[in-house]
Nucleic acid binder design. Sequence first.
DNA 1: CAAATATTCAATTAACTTATTGAATATCTC
DNA 2: GAGATATTCAATAAGTTAATTGAATATTTG
Lengths: 221, 221
Amino acid sequence: MDETRDFKTQLYEHFARIGKALSSGHRLELLDLLAQGGRTVEVLAREAGMSVANTSQHLQVLREAQLVAVRRDGQYASYRLADEQVFRAWQEVRELGRARLAEIDRTVSDFLADRETLQAVNAHELLRLVREEKVVVLDVRPKEEYQAGHIAGARSVPLAELKVHIKRLPKSREIIAYCRGPYCVLADNAVAFLRSRGYKARRLDSGYPDWKVQGLPVAVS
Amino acid sequence: MDETRDFKTQLYEHFARIGKALSSGHRLELLDLLAQGGRTVEVLAREAGMSVANTSQHLQVLREAQLVAVRRDGQYASYRLADEQVFRAWQEVRELGRARLAEIDRTVSDFLADRETLQAVNAHELLRLVREEKVVVLDVRPKEEYQAGHIAGARSVPLAELKVHIKRLPKSREIIAYCRGPYCVLADNAVAFLRSRGYKARRLDSGYPDWKVQGLPVAVS
DNA sequence: CAAATATTCAATTAACTTATTGAATATCTC
DNA sequence: GAGATATTCAATAAGTTAATTGAATATTTG
């Protein structure tokens, strides 16, 4: 029965390829960006603060583990998540980290001192508030990410445009901002700005990909 | 805003600690064993075919990532999964591998040529069959694992005892065998043996931890 | 077809991970 | 308290991974 041992070793070694792909901070950041929609190498490199060559190499690793797919588009290579299950695996790792690694909470509250006062709304509460027309929902990600997919009924107001757009927001209704995910700071900044101007505002506790993967209503344009 | 970059880098680096813990075949095998219940270092080493020192080192890595917890018990150190979420993360990695890595299917069908003919039952079908009292359910894992927790209504018949126990099984009802997980071969062997003796038998397509994590009825004794 | 742009590849270096070995520690048993 | 057992630790050697650099390739634009 030593064949059984070889079989097991080989099998777990295969699964470990997935783990290896998830074992670098840079690669997780790339996956998290790709969860918002496809992107070129250069854009990914800029957004993740890495060199293009290094980004390309990490993308090769993700591609070998079949977590991302690439489509050549003229002179650009456009990468995207291979499928939604890849996001779910990253989400599971993220939630496990949040639950078990105290350092994560510490890092977050060092950087975002007022995270606790934010009273973030969860996805199901938000769905109810939207249905009852009690809130205005703002997608504060870059416009291209909104166009690639957004929460049904949300308006696109990239953080940079919020200062201008604010005049068109009602003070009578609460405003809910969301962005890429629970650790994305765009929504925190939006909420802080809105509150400083006397608006009632909170953030969604997760992000667009989390909303989508739960099967909640989305729109594309 | 370079502080934001540092914050992100640090945060993703923390999450990558979880990925790193999942990036070795040996460690995944240890987690999969621990999902059946707590075990000592020596037992883990024997079951995973590793040296005790090496097993201990891998367990330290898992412990630093907070995926396992240890309790000293006299001269033994007993390791267990830190919580059920750890199993879910491993399960997600496992399912992602199954869905995306063709090598996994190939490795399985090379070793278990008749996997396809097995017509495995899924958890919800099994639950229905049990409720309707249409089947006999056999837990073919070692007795200690049955005692640490098993599917409600299942009988403990470790594979080695099946030859003796077979006399007490009805030919009129179908027999469903299950073991540690979808890649555990104990249930395959049990089904092959039962069929060779003229019994109607199938296996559960997953294992005890998968059943439990779905919230289906379990028993302990 | 030359120049510009986007991406990948290959080579290098530094840093990290793994398995092995043997020693150290800690608990139990007599 | 001596001997046995279980686990961890420390040191080593071999193997792997990461970031950087500069060159190679491939596509578009003029």
